[in-house]
Design a protein around this nucleic acid. Structure first.
Lengths: 331, 331
DNA sequence: ACTGTTATTGCAACCGATCTCAGCAACCGA
DNA sequence: TCGGTTGCTGAGATCGGTTGCAATAACAGT
């Protein structure tokens, strides 16, 4: 592969390299006739521009980092999927950055993205986002966060309406005849997690029942602990809301190991709407987040911010997805 | 952030930029005194080298693409996780490339990685790898494949011993007293999938039983179809081997919806050893692949190939992981 | 025919490093 | 003291593009 630089194309097409450059990146600045000729020649040679060289000169690249705590978590995986899609639809390349919840790594990724002239980045946090920390890196580099942030200021966000989601879950369960409904958090740290829990607490109280938090831990073992807690109770709830699908899986699994059946003995509803839920045993009833939309919107927000400086906060509507893990309470 | 180039550091340290360059990338070529001074100054300014500029000049970067068909599949997610880890332990940045099984995209990613001077790439395929296609891009760019390849030649691979895995599963099931054992493929395309199925077929025949393939489709609905097939049988098998964990999940879920219980009515064993399996209902017995090892080894193989041109084919040992989805056959 | 646009294209500096080559000082043995 | 290493640093070309500016061509208007 004879090194294919812009100059060899230029020579082959009989023009100067700046013309080739323009033919690619500013088509309207070149006579259409010439442009087509150049493009044809380039095509023939199998030439593509070097994103590196471009980025270096332009001081802006097409690398966009997606910072997630754990790609193993299907929620982030689905997010990553739709985002890679959305990204390369627009000519970006997604850089997957996995932090394992380590803030130091997050910082590292930020400086790296800075150095690579990333036009912006997407953060799906596992902790409350430190807006100040973000600002430190905000010299021309924008970030959009997939979570709510405190103070509502400089950084665009996209989230789903947690309260509305919990309300949907509660309504569904009430409609089925449940009156005693427990909650397992299993996630903590993000504002979203907080919001879901708060919504549960408030809405339950409002409806006259007493909230019943089976576990508020932040790891996946919350499922196990929640199940144990459930078993110890004199009159356990007839339904359980899990803060997200993964926790719901864990709860059902732990319950199952102890002989409690879902939904026969207790209904369980999750929150996320993972594709995986459809293959669970039983298929999981859940509050579905429009993950695909979130990915696209995150990128749109970032581009919009870059273009006109506007900072939006998009809140999406969740949807109830009824599958097999909920039913009427046992008499 | 006053643009921090190598020149400003050079000026600040009172040396030429080439000395700064050497201080970073070839420390032994600079008087230790000078070097330390430079490093100190750089540190003070908060300077880091531009990976872009480096790559452009050196014609080799630290970007390493990981090409997977679907990050939503937990197997690839776990792989991606350990690989990002392994990658940035060695100073690389992993570029996640999701193909959705589209070979055209794979091609696109290859040319992109070529353009970015990636020192090598990792491919976890969803189809039989076309070695020839790889070669087209092999001008200085190496690839390691997470699957077996035909012909065994120029490309390094890492896989687990499929036959051994199936043997482990079969032994476990036999030990439990099962004699009639079915198989659901649910994946197809890769050599690995082929190998697992072949191993099942052979080993079953060898032990005198007749193989019983419930479904050999390649999508996840194989689970559903397999379950239906199972239900239609006069004397269904007492145990089922699924070609991978995801399919096992699907099978158990589909079976559950039709009132068949695992492991009471039928035992199911998966293949992969996903962390998720521990949270399934019931927790999934499975053949565990050493995914973390695979990630590290893949990178090592690539580096080794770059260094001394050697092409290795590593075959790892799978392990039986007994959890709750298998038990003795019902009388 | 002459001057004032406007459309195209070439020139050359520049982005932030790396690397070969050359220069220079200190050091070595004779 | 002198030629011959050896060690360290500076110069300047180069990687593959981009872009402001100048040059030329083409086209109007009068």
């Amino acid at each position: 592969m004879p090194d294919l630089s812009i100059d060899v194309v230029a020579k082959a097409a009989g023009v100067h390299r700046s013309t080739v450059s323009r033919a690619f990146s500013r088509p309207e600045a070149v006579k259409s006739e010439t442009r087509e000729h150049i493009l044809r020649v380039a095509e023939g040679l199998g030439y593509t521009m070097s994103p590196l060289a471009q980025a270096l000169r332009r001081k802006t690249s097409t690398f966009i980092p997606l910072i997630v705590p754990d790609i193993t978590n299907p929620f982030f995986a689905e997010l990553a999927k739709t985002m890679t899609q959305a990204a390369d639809e627009r000519g970006y390349q997604l850089l997957l950055c996995v932090t394992n919840g380590d803030p130091a790594k997050t910082d590292g990724y930020f400086t790296a993205m800075q150095a690579m002239y990333a036009p912006f980045g997407i953060v799906a946090p596992s902790t409350k986002v430190d807006t100040e920390a973000l600002k430190r890196f905000d010299f021309g580099h924008k970030v959009v966060v997939i979570d709510r942030v405190e103070g509502d200021d400089a950084v665009p966000t996209v989230t789903v309406d947690s309260r509305r989601g919990i309300m949907l879950a509660l309504d569904h369960l009430h409609g089925l005849g449940h009156t005693s409904i427990g909650y397992v958090s299993g996630i903590a740290g993000t504002h979203t997690a907080q919001d879901r829990m708060d919504a549960y607490l408030e809405l339950t109280a409002q409806s006259g029942s007493t909230p019943l938090v089976l576990d508020s831990g932040s790891d996946l073992d919350a499922g196990t602990r929640g199940a144990e807690h459930y078993l110890e109770m004199d009159s356990p709830p007839t339904a359980i809301i899990a803060a997200n699908d993964m926790v719901a899986f864990a709860v059902i699994s732990a319950l199952g190991q102890r002989g409690v059946r879902v939904p026969e003995d207790v209904s369980v509803i999750g929150f996320d709407g993972l594709a995986l839920g459809a293959r669970f045993n039983p298929a999981l009833t859940t509050i579905q987040q429009p993950i695909a939309d979130m990915g696209h919107i995150a990128i749109e927000l970032a581009e919009k911010q870059n273009a006109d400086g506007s900072v939006d906060h998009i809140v999406l509507e969740p949807q109830l997805l009824v599958r097999g893990s909920t039913s009427g309470p046992r008499k």
